[in-house]
Every structure is written in C-alpha cells, then in structure tokens.
Design a binder for these strands. Structure first.
Length: 453
RNA sequence: GCGCCGGUAGCUCAAUUGGCAGAGCAUUUGACUCUUAAUCAACAGGUUCCGGGUUCAAGUCCCGGCCGGCGCACCA
C-alpha cells in the first residue's frame, strides 16, 4: 500500500510522513548500528529500517526472530540504495514465532509438513498463497454470477437418512438423541429439486459433499460442489449457461480465458464443442457403437482394453465405460459430452427420439470431468422404476447404486416443472485457474491420514 | 486396498561397492552506519521415521510397521 503512495520518493529522500505498520518479520539484516528487516503483511512487503540512534530498544529489535509479528511506527523514507522503508522509531513485538517458517530461500517442500501445517506453508511459499487466494476469488465469482443470473442461494441438509443424488459410497455417522444412523451427503441434488417443487424456480447451493472413496491428485473425500437448478430450462439452456459461467469466472479471476495449464495452452472460451458419447466412443474404437450395439459386443470391446466387465452392466453402462476408457483423458479444452445412457443416469430425463438415452451432458477439461448436468426427470412413475432398477443393482452387489427415496418420489408427485440441473466441481475448476496439478493444493486443509503410533 | 518411489539437524539437501553422519540457511555468541537470501568469525545442533534382523561394521542390505508422493482401483 505504501509503495504506491510514496512511489515518488527519490533515493535517500525522507517523506516527513509517519506511518504505523504491522506484519511478520521475514528477513533481518543487521549491520552494526543499523538493521534492515523485510516485513510482510497481507498486502505485500515493506522494509523496516532501524538505527541505533533513532530506534527505541534497538538492541532488542535486532534480536527479533524470523516469523515474529511486529507493530512499527516510523517515518516513510527511501534508503540510499532505493528501498522504500519505514524508519523505525518505536516498535512492539505482537507475537513471537517459536518455530521458523522453513528455509528462507527454499521455503518448505515436504508435503507432509506443508499440508499438516498449512499456516507455515502459506508464509513460506508464495505459490501456496496465490493458489488458495485464487480459489477464494473463484468462489466469489461463482456466487456473484449465480446471483446476477437470478439464482437464490440455499442450504440443504448435510446429514441425510438416505445418501442419494449421485453414485457414490457415503460416510456413515450416528445421531445419539435420535438414535439413528445418518449419512453425510454425497450430493444436495434431490433437496434442491424439492425446493424447485416448492416454487423457488432458480436455486443454487455452493457447498461441501462427502464421498467415501480413495484419495488422488484429483480426489479429496470432501470436496466443494456448485449445484444449481433452473425451472423451465432444458439441458441445452444449461450448457449455454455453464460455458458462459466458467468463461466469465476465468475473466474475473485471471482476466483472460486463454491460459496455460501444466505447461500446455488451455482455453476457457465459450462456446464449447458438443459431441455425443456414442460419437466420441465410435471414433476412439474405430467402429460405430451406440447404446443399441449388442451388449456382448461392447463388453468384448471393453475386455480387449483390459476393463473388467461386470455381469450387471447393460449396454448403456458398457458404452459409458468404453467412453471413459478411451476418450476421457484426451479431452483437453472444455468440451460437452452429451446423450448419456439412461442406465447410468437415473435422475435424468429421457431423450424423446431415443428413450435409451438422456438429455444429459458432462463437460470435460484437462482430461477430467468438470461438470455434470441434465434435464431433470420429472415423471414420478418413471423415477420410481429408475430407483427400482438401482435397487436391483444394489442387491446385485453394486454398493454405489442409489436407494429408493420415497420422499423424493412424493415431491415429484406434487409436480416438478421442467427443470435443468447442474453440478460443477469447484476444486477441479480451482486447479485449472491456479495451474495446480493436485487438488490438495487448492484445498486449505486437504484430508490426510491421521498420525498414529 | 494393491504397486512403485521417498522419509538424514528446526528448514533445504549431501553422504562412492556396507567403513568416523556433513553443508547452507535458521538458532546462539561476536564484528560491522545503507542492507536486499547482507557479509565475516565462532559455538551449538542427530534415536538417520519406528521396531526387529544380517554383519567385525547399517543412513546404506533384509523383514514388519508409520507417514507422504505418484500410479492402479474407486470416483467428480
């Protein structure tokens, strides 16, 4: 902040203005009766210039530790060597750092230390600060753009009697007074649609969901999802909204839609290409395949690629697996993959011209799924049969199949208007914007194994 | 959960085929009136992640465990 105000000061010039500043000592250079300290606050760094003749308790000042917080009063000056400084007259140590913040040149690189003590990592490593700040800007931008588009922000339960809205294993917990097992939500989807039934025509929720699955550079057991629902929209409308939303967010955070991700050019610019799952899978395997290709043939194509095919999979699931095995990683710039099989889309509306497919899309970017959306299934009868099919899969050993949610079916019986829904993985988007290879880098405190022994 | 790789001073990292466990920074002490990772000198700093084993001798080799990174699986 001071840097702009006093940019005019020439080398060795004294401004005559007194400033109060506070921050953390990052570097300290003593030279006899002089001392220079680099102090940092949330806005940047400023040099402190202490002189034995001017600075109170000079002998104590030079004994400050790297990492100590200080409050300083003094005149704003520019040193003979041109560094804008506060010439310390009085100062106070606000807090003492008993541990250092890593090597003052190399910082902290040990992942275990960085993630378990992110506070130290943030002080030691500028890239960590930048990446988490970008995530914050992303979240702000998403909210503002949703509000601007007429969406109302709502909150729905994280403690659920039935974990549903996605294909995933839940975390289980227990409520003592109710004497009931509860599950941490795997998606807010069904609650949000019930709010649309209730008359809130555009709603969104930006919040945490929990899935009991393995960790990887792209997966954290708790992650942040933006889900939004718009009455009277279909999946085409939603695709048009999402590509503008994401491109707009890139403009807000980066000031451009053209960037680099992990050393490779990457563009957020809308519109994004739209290809059907069957088209992409057909190109990848070199022959026409679709949801109507005999299941055994699709299974053979999968098996020849080393994918283990389960007996419960129909042609739809096989097609989706084939797409994932052959196409997913190669999709770099954002692209919409559309027309998902009904078998893998138990909550999505059927396509009119082909009831084995749905009005569903997923966007892919940098080789991974970024968003998922569809025209919602609003027919309670069809929804019940879809749930029953899921229940059959669960009985056959699929522990990620959905359970029948009678309350949700009842809500559909009150009438869900034609509605489109969307989920965006906020952490994944943050990775792209921050140019980070691991999801852990854009989560302040990623899930780690508790220390034992 | 499985596989590969890693864990050495507070931090960043060395240590040849198994042969006295080291450096820089930080800390402590001293010198120094314009430094920018200041510089110079000195002191101190270790259960080499933990527990076993092989060996005259283990940071190094073997077995088990803990934690992490990557890959697979699972998924977004």
């Amino acid at each position: 902040m001071l840097a702009k105000t006093y940019a005019h000061l020439t080398d060795g010039e004294e401004s005559g203005a007194v400033a109060n500043v506070a921050g953390r000592i990052m570097l300290l250079r003593t030279q006899g009766k002089l001392a220079f300290a680099t102090m940092r606050d949330s806005t940047g760094e400023i040099q402190l210039f202490a002189l034995a003749a001017v600075t109170q308790e000079f002998d104590e000042f030079v004994k400050l530790h790297l990492g100590d917080w200080v409050g300083v009063t003094g005149e704003v000056v520019r040193t003979k060597r041109g560094e804008l400084s506060v010439k310390v007259t009085s100062w106070v140590r606000l807090a003492e750092a008993l541990h250092n913040f890593g090597d003052k040149w190399a910082g902290i690189s040990d992942f275990d230390l960085r993630y378990r003590h992110r506070e130290a990592d943030l002080w030691a490593n500028p890239v960590s600060r930048r990446s988490l700040a970008r995530r914050s800007e992303l979240v702000r931008s998403l909210r503002e753009r949703c509000w601007a588009a007429g969406f109302m922000e709502v909150e729905t339960p994280m403690l659920n009697a039935i974990p549903t809205g996605a294909a995933a294993r839940p975390f289980k917990t227990h409520h003592n007074a109710l004497s009931s097992d509860l599950y941490l939500r795997i998606a807010p989807e069904l609650w949000l649609k019930r709010l649309v039934v209730g008359g809130f025509e555009r709603v969104f929720e930006l919040g945490r969901v929990f899935r009991n699955e393995g960790l990887s550079p792209r997966h954290n057991p708790e992650f942040t999802m933006l889900e939004l629902y718009a009455a009277y929209w279909n999946f085409d409308d939603m695709m048009a909204f999402v590509e503008e939303l994401v491109a707009g967010v890139a403009m807000d955070v980066l000031g451009t839609t053209e960037t680099e991700y992990q050393g490779r050019v990457f563009s957020f610019a809308a519109p994004w290409p739209r290809r059907t799952m069957a088209e992409l899978a057909s190109e990848a395997v070199g022959e026409d395949v679709s949801v109507h290709t005999p299941r055994e043939h699709l299974a053979a194509l999968l098996a020849s690629r080393g994918v283990e095919v389960h007996a419960s999979w129909g042609a739809g699931r096989c097609l989706a697996e084939l797409f994932e095995a052959t196409c997913e990683e190669s999709l770099w710039n954002p692209i919409y993959v559309t027309e998902y099989p009904v078998e893998v889309s138990p909550l999505a509306r059927r396509l009119e011209r082909d009831p084995e497919l749905t009005e569903r899309f997923e966007s892919y970017a940098a080789g991974r799924e970024l968003s998922n959306g569809f025209s919602e299934l609003i027919d309670p009868v069809d929804q019940r049969s879809r749930f029953e099919e899921q229940a059959r899969l669960a009985a056959a050993g699929d522990d990620e199949a959905m359970q029948i949610d009678e309350d949700y079916i009842k809500s559909l019986e009150w009438g869900l208007p034609p509605t489109a829904g969307l989920g965006i993985g906020v952490d994944r988007l943050a990775m792209l914007l921050a140019d980070e290879p691991s999801i852990r880098e854009v989560i302040a405190f990623p899930t780690l194994k508790p220390l034992r022994d």
